[in-house]
Design a protein around this nucleic acid. Structure first.
Lengths: 210, 210, 210, 210
DNA sequence: TATGAATGAGGATTCATTCAT
DNA sequence: CATGAATGAATCCTCATTCAT
């Protein structure tokens, strides 16, 4: 009758493992078919399980996709944080994050999708879906914002608003991801990145700060 | 108007008018439900016509959506061009375009959607759909790029690549649109725009041009 | 004309004329597309009138098709009767009818269709449609039957039942029509007819009448 | 059975069984409504399954209908072959086939439909559909033709062409089926058959072979 | 009388979800 | 737990029919 704690945790682990297998599969499918063209059938195939099994691990399709996006985001944001932590100086941290994003993007085209945040779910934010994604992403945006703030305090950056800089920076990265994904023959990502960061850091204007 | 090319007879005009009514309806629905969640039923309701009527004006759903996006883009790009032409100086032209976009966005939330270029169609970009949209947009991107080039030649801007600057600028605008659309209580768009353009023009770095 | 019974006023005549034009068009379309694949649109195109106009002359689609089949049958049966009347001897009359059918069939592929009597309308004879066609055809079957009866009385034919012989004969003709219509490279119709009539007249058995 | 080729596992058998249940249902519906007026809804009702289930067993409506006709034809032709094989003498084989057809027809009114070979698909015969049916039927027509040829060689029949005799014979059977199906109060099928075969075997002419 | 734009019921097909095994 | 056959709501699209002009 009584469960041995070991057995229990083993089942827990197995469950977790299965869950992640499914999320990996979902991410792959997202990467190949885009977020909205996905069918449960296809995810099940990719994960090597039966359709019904998906419902043992996830409430429904939306929950699964949401988890898959979260999962991808988490991994990606983790990577960015590590890269930032390893760098010295705020500009360097920003560059490190940018490089991480470019690398993630190269590895996981799905990320490019995820980054675009399922805009088809509508601007109203009605769907709990996009709401929760926002919640996921906000801490990361704030993390980047703080780097900018620190840079301002450290005298590395102008007196800009951290959040705005963060958003502009991430828009830039999204645009780059977009180009790399959509362009049939995209230019070298790192060159492109350097050129864009140059503009981002120094502005387009000739005269420097007003 | 850009969308009623040489409409002669009364019937032609009426047909054109109806067509545009439907496209308006589609744009509204896109604005409220996102591109992929739309049903013909819903568009028909919004347009105040029967489902079958849609098929008198458009081959099928994809053709209708494509036209609706084109329609929105055309109108929007037209507006931006006019604003740019009316401004003197390259920086001023860019600001004028930015203001147009903010205004368009305020009026037509659907535009925010359209601007995001149907990413759900998948990374492959295979579909003739997204391909045609790219073709629509490219001339506009080049138009903006040329403004930057002119600015460089005129000594208003640093020696930046026009296309990259244009893409960065449009990413910035997309990010702003995104914020305005998604944020439940977005900050004032014009203030926000000014702050972002400040960063865009002068960069985040303190030292000005390297 | 057989189908304009006592048309008096000019308007009546015009109406009758229009009606027949439409029926011709319908027959042509039937000949090209089969009975069930026909659309009112297509008939209207062929007749050179607007869709709505069809409804000025016919209650609905079924009534139109029914009339078109009747029209075709009438013309065809008329032709067969004339041919039979012109021939001397019962076997000769039968041959004459057979030749008429082959000729009609060659001219009007639609006839082949019509001859097959819209079997898709179901065996139950539920539809008033197939019922009325039966009524149209019966007199003609009886006309042929009487030729056989006369042949029996005249000593030209064995003591067979006229109706059965008529039905067998018409089945034979239908089979021939079927072959000519469906076979991608049908053999010469007249040769084929002669061979079949030979079997029909003399039977397959070697010994003659038992 | 001809329709369960090498069914091994229990699941295979079950699947085969379900498939046949659906085909039976389709055949019934064809028998009642004709080939073209059928809806998937109706077939599903008759089979006692949901609409979607039909698509688990058949690609689409056309594939289902095609299979249903094939299924009916196969069963019917199998039956005719068995009857023919069991009979001695060519005339007897032909009679045996005729009896089988009459019996099949009595049991399965749908057969009468199927026998009429979907003429609504139009004279062009372009559709792969009717093409495949032709391919199904041809071997059977040839089978009957060979019986006639054998009869000629054996001195039972006159020097007739086997294929033509076969076609005439099958036309006769079709005509009989038609009568039995359409006539509100059809005469006794066997009496009718005997009378028609009498004409078929001995011809209508008095004089025997010319 | 003639038109043809508009209608909307009807039908094929898909796919997320359930549940008996 | 896992399965995958079955379900049926939802969606696109067609086309016979109507009716304002």
């Amino acid at each position: 009758m009584a469960f041995s704690p070991a057995a229990k945790s083993k089942e827990e682990l197995l469950k977790q493992f299965r869950r992640n297998e499914i999320l990996d599969a979902a991410r792959d499918v997202i990467g190949h078919q885009g977020v909205t063209e996905i069918s449960m059938e296809r995810i099940a195939q990719q994960a090597g399980v039966a359709k019904g099994t998906l419902y043992l691990y996830f409430e429904n399709k939306d929950a699964l996709l949401e988890s898959a996006l979260e999962y991808t985001y988490q991994e990606f944001m983790e990577r960015c944080r590590s890269a930032a932590d390893a760098a010295t100086g705020c500009a360097a941290k920003i560059r490190a994050i940018a490089s991480s994003i470019v690398a993630s993007n190269a590895e996981q085209r799905a990320f490019g999708q995820a980054l675009q945040e399922r805009p088809e779910l509508g601007p109203e934010g009605v769907s709990a879906f996009s709401e929760r994604l926002r919640e996921q992403i906000m801490p990361f945006v704030e993390f980047v914002a703080e780097i900018f703030q620190a840079g301002v305090r450290a005298g590395e950056f102008r007196a800009i608003d951290g959040m705005r800089a963060a958003r502009l920076f991430l828009s830039l990265m999204r645009g780059l991801a977009f180009q790399q994904i959509r362009d049939p023959q995209p230019p070298d990502a790192n060159q492109e990145l350097d050129a864009l960061l140059d503009i981002f850091f120094h502005g387009v204007s000739l005269g420097g700060t007003a």
